[in-house]
Design a protein around this nucleic acid. Structure first.
Lengths: 125, 125
DNA sequence: AATTTCTACAACCATTTGGTTGTACGTTAA
DNA sequence: TTAACGTACAACCAAATGGTTGTAGAAATT
């Protein structure tokens, strides 16, 4: 199964914003280990049912969870694909950082008689 | 060098919120590959200097960048430690997911003569 | 000394966010 | 059939966000 590789800026915005709230992160954790109804989730938090409903909606719009019908309930389930995509994003940041560190190391390792100013970095992207 | 392992909810809030903006993510990428002054950054974006200054402040409060003095300039530099901590957070999410999948797999692998209705999931919490 | 550059910060504004309560509707249970 | 449960959604509100302009100070340039 091929998953989408690239995410638009707006999608990434929604994902990070969705994760920028402790209640929503907690919901994600819960539904990753097992789907739960909205009201079952709402029982866990000290806020109204409608507030939890809104949090779930934010997570759903970000693609972090999905909802399914079962009778009168709506079961919320975590979507690990989106989690994985965020990890790839952060991996990219780390690669950028490492490339820079490697370049600085190369500079320091090079003898001062041969300044490597022409090719400081393997020039990716 | 030992880095902090745990982050408070408020810290994680700030980090994810800081990353929930395309301009700020772009700034992070730029300063991970090499430090830049605030005005050099501001030249890159179609908004006022003050707006970019605010974005940098948000990133700084989240611990994603640091600022250093050089004459009248303030050099902005990426902080990979924080990036790494976010990765660890997401790793945790993935482990939770995998644990659940493994449990379901174990259920499916069990012979039908032993109905697993009593323990559908390893009952966490 | 005067001017320009880089930064800091306050004040303001429109929009979004995160919460509330209230109403309505489909589904299950008595 | 009636009542209770689970959900959806609108309306409202306070606070935060993301932008602006304007003022001021420190450092560099002329």
């Amino acid at each position: 199964m091929v998953v989408e590789i690239d995410l638009s800026d707006a999608e990434v915005d929604r994902i990070f914003r969705a994760l920028a709230d402790a209640t929503r992160r907690d919901i994600v954790e819960r539904v990753l280990t097992g789907e739960q109804s909205v009201s079952a989730l709402a029982d866990r938090y000290d806020m109204s049912f409608a507030a939890v409903q809104k949090h779930v909606a934010v997570l759903e719009r970000a693609g972090l969870v999905t909802k399914h019908h079962r009778g009168r309930e709506r079961l919320v389930r975590g979507n690990p694909d989106t989690i994985r995509r965020v990890q790839h994003l952060l991996d990219r940041y780390e690669r950028l950082w490492r490339a820079r560190i490697d370049a600085l190391d190369a500079l320091l390792a090079a003898p001062p008689s041969t300044p490597p100013a022409t090719t400081p970095v393997p020039e990716q992207e």
